[in-house]
Design a protein around this nucleic acid. Structure first.
Length: 121
RNA sequence: GGAGCCGGCCAAGCAGCCGCGUCACGCUUUGCGUGCCGAGGAAAGUCCGGGCUCCACAGGGCAAGGUGCCAGGUAACGCCUGGGCGGCGCGAGCCGACGGAAAGUGCAACAGAAAGCAAACCGCCGAACGGCAUCGCAAGAUGUGCGUGGCAAGGGUGAAACGGUGCGGUAAGAGCGCACCGCGCGCGGGGCCAACGCCGCGUGGCACGGCAAACCCCACCUGGAGCAAGACCAAAUAGGGGAGCUAUGACGUGGCCCGCGUCGCUCCCGGGUUGGAUGCUUGAGCCCUGCGGCGACGCAGGGCCUAGAGGAAUGGCUGCUCACGACAGAACCCGGCUUACCGGCCGGCUCCCACU
């Protein structure tokens, strides 16, 4: 399946049950500014959930920036990802990085998720 | 031209590509396509005021909290407008919890004699009574500031010390007397009412120091919880079992009491769930014009629809331009206040300088 670079609702974690299930069975993958809870799903494609707490920044504007970068990167690259659920958690250091370096971080994170998925199968 | 005051407005712009959300339309309808629209002046802090919703309709008393010059505006307000008073500024203007201290209680560091009823450290006085000295036969006179005393002008302390200036007066002094000023009280005028104390008249020698963001008094206001409020649909589940106690008992009721309403009650086990959709944006709405009003604002007519998410959209990248871009992200909705903020534009006004 070759998905376009879109971000439909089917590619998001929407319900509390989705998050609860993921936390129950997930494995942890991390980089310098992000960490992620990852687990295979039965949806036929990757799904993303975001957790940017107020510990990262008290400013809603600055938290939104991180979320938007993450979403945008996900929609561009989700065709390359395996069918996994990802709960992306920002570390407080992410607030200090500019957009370009956040994207570079996400590229690294995606590589580790792919490698992790290879190892499971 | 420079410095400044007030009011209003904007919040980098343009293009391309890739995305996200609501709505409308269409289609081959778990989706796709096209089109429109898509954060703020503060969306923020959650400090006030309302709408809306539910709480066995909210009645009385006490408590608690809030507000506090006057009038008006408003759905309401702790907001706004106008006025008064006080303070600051040359000025345009700005700032002010600004009711009551002749109802009570209380407070005032340090300094100072004394902080509220009067009192007296330095000081001033020698009138009165007494002492002493001198003179005198005596009565007494003079002197002395020693005792009892008189005084509060001057000095000094303080944030604050029981009106000010002058003349008279006196032993020295003192509203002790008088003139003017100030102050209190009363009456009249003014302020369209009022706060106020601008003017006039009368009256009182002046009796009333400060603090009420100290208690307090007075006047007015406040029922509680909040959209995870609440109401709806569908499916599933349950509406039961055991033990004990006894109605001057328990609960509703989130300050307390009364009142009102409901019901047998307590403990243990079991159950009290999940999803969808609603509330959700048309509203004390916005923009023009006219009329009334100093103004806040009101009335009338016409026009407009301007985010509505729900693990949460409103974005990312690239290029160009310039004055190189601040504070900051809607979550039920309004009206305010407060706080944050790179800069820019418009209008009105003040002061200074120069020129004509």
């Amino acid at each position: 399946m070759i998905a376009p670079a879109t971000f439909p609702r089917a590619a998001r974690l929407l319900k509390p049950q989705d998050f609860a299930r993921l936390r129950r069975i997930s494995r942890h993958v991390g980089t310098r500014h992000f960490s992620a809870e990852v687990a295979a799903n039965e949806q036929g494609g990757p799904r993303l959930g975001l957790a940017i707490s107020k510990r990262v920044s008290k400013s809603a504007v600055r938290r939104n920036r991180i979320k938007r970068i993450a979403r945008d990167h996900f929609r561009r690259t989700r065709a390359e990802l395996p069918a996994v659920d990802i709960l992306l958690i920002a570390r407080s250091s992410a607030d200090q990085e500019d957009n370009a370096s956040l994207r570079a971080e996400l590229v690294r994170l995606w590589q580790r998720i792919a490698a992790f998925n290879e190892a499971v199968h």
